[in-house]
C-alpha cells in the first residue's frame, strides 16, 4: 500500500449474519482512497452501505474481509490501546445532534473526556484546549456554552458541539455521517461552511456521507456513489454531476430536486437492491434501462472513464 492516501478501504467487506437466510452483505469489496486534506463524499440511498462503510473506516465495525489502511498502517484488526490511538486520528460526526450527545452531561464534559482520554491533557491545559475548540466551532462566549446541557442548545449548536468533540482528539480524518440532514436549510449552510473552514485550518480529510448530491457537490472534491453495498462510481465532484457514467448515478441525479432533469426517471422498475450473499452481478441490474445479459451474472470491475473517473458498468468498456 502506498502512503499517497491517508485512509484507504481495500476490498472492504462487511457481512451481517442472518438466521434462516443467506448472510447480508452491507458493504461488498469496497475500494476507496482518501488523500490528506481531501473530502470524499459517499452518496447513496438508505441501505446502500454508505454508513456501514464509514463506520468500518473509523473501526466502529471490524471488516469481515478486506483491509482498512491509515497513513500506511494496517488498522483492520487493531484493538485496545492501538484502537484508542487510532481514534486520536480518526473521528466521526453523527447524523442526529439530539441523539449524539448524552442528556446528562454538559458541553464541557462532552469535550473534556476525549481531551483527557485521547490527548492525556489535565487541569489548566485541558481547560485551555477546551476553550480553543469551542471557539473554533463558533460557540462563543465559551464560558456560557461550557456549562450548558444538550437540551439547552438548538440543533445547530448541538451539531457544533458534536463537531467540537470529534476535533478534541486532534484528528486528521473525520467521517461525517449525514451531519446536516436533520437541520433546517439555513443551519445546514452554517455547518457545511464550518466543516469547510475547519478543513482549511486543521488540514482535515473528510468522508462526507450523504444522500444529497447537491451538498456533496458543494463540499467534496470527489464523489463516490454506492448502491446495494457496492461502490458503483467515483469521480471528481464536478465530473460526476456533469457527466455521470453509471446508470444508477444518472438515475440519482435525475431524481434529485433542483436537477436539470425533467423527463421520466431512467429506471425500469422500483425495487430495493438485493443485499444477500448469493447475489450475482450488478446490484442495479434489475432496475437498469441498459441492462445486458452479463450484468446479471458478474459484477463489472471499476472501469476508468476519464482521468480520476471510474464506474463499475460494462457500458463504459
Amino acid at each position: 500500500m502506498t502512503s499517497k492516501f491517508l485512509v484507504s478501504a481495500d476490498h472492504l467487506t462487511i457481512r451481517f449474519p442472518r438466521t434462516n437466510a443467506p448472510d447480508l452483505i452491507a458493504s461488498r469489496a469496497v475500494n476507496l482512497d482518501i488523500a490528506a486534506k481531501e473530502t470524499v463524499a459517499l452518496v447513496g440511498e438508505s441501505g446502500s452501505g454508505k454508513t456501514t462503510t464509514g463506520r468500518a473506516l473509523v473501526r466502529l465495525l471490524t471488516p469481515s474481509a478486506g483491509k482498512v489502511w491509515f497513513d500506511g498502517k494496517d488498522v483492520t484488526h487493531i484493538r485496545g490501546q492501538a484502537l484508542m490511538r487510532y481514534h486520536r486520528n480518526a473521528q466521526m460526526i453523527f447524523q442526529d445532534p439530539f441523539a449524539s450527545l448524552n442528556p446528562f452531561h454538559t458541553v464541557a464534559h462532552h469535550l473534556s473526556r476525549p481531551l483527557t482520554r485521547l490527548r492525556h491533557l489535565k487541569g489548566h491545559e485541558r481547560e485551555e484546549a477546551l476553550d480553543e475548540i469551542l471557539t473554533l466551532v463558533g460557540l462563543t462566549p465559551t464560558a456560557i456554552y461550557r456549562e450548558k446541557y444538550p437540551h439547552e442548545l438548538s440543533g445547530g449548536q448541538r451539531q457544533r458541539v458534536a463537531i467540537a468533540r470529534a476535533l478534541a482528539g486532534g484528528p486528521s480524518f473525520i467521517v461525517a455521517d449525514e451531519p446536516v440532514s436533520m437541520l433546517d436549510v439555513s443551519l445546514r449552510a452554517e455547518i457545511l461552511t464550518l466543516l469547510e473552514s475547519l478543513q482549511e485550518r486543521r488540514g482535515l480529510s473528510y468522508l462526507y456521507i450523504t444522500h444529497d448530491l447537491a451538498s456533496a457537490r458543494y463540499l467534496a472534491h470527489r464523489i463516490a456513489v454506492m448502491y446495494g453495498g457496492s461502490l458503483v462510481e467515483i469521480a471528481p465532484a464536478e465530473d460526476l454531476v456533469q457527466a455521470p457514467a453509471h446508470p444508477y448515478t444518472r438515475l440519482l441525479l435525475a431524481a434529485t430536486p433542483g436537477s436539470a432533469h425533467t423527463g421520466p426517471l431512467p429506471e425500469t422498475m422500483q425495487s430495493a437492491p438485493d443485499l444477500s450473499e448469493d447475489r450475482k452481478g450488478c446490484p442495479f441490474a434489475p432496475r437498469c434501462p441498459a441492462v445486458m445479459d452479463r450484468c446479471t451474472k458478474t459484477m463489472p470491475a471499476m472501469i476508468t472513464v476519464a482521468d480520476g473517473h471510474q464506474a463499475a458498468c460494462y457500458l463504459n468498456e
Binding site: 444529497d212 447537491a214 451538498s215 454531476v241
Partner: peptide, 9 residues
C-alpha cells in the same frame, strides 16, 4: 433560504 442551499446545476 435560496442562498443557503447548495445547487446541483
Amino acid at each position: 433560504l435560496m442562498r443557503a442551499a447548495p445547487r446541483l446545476i
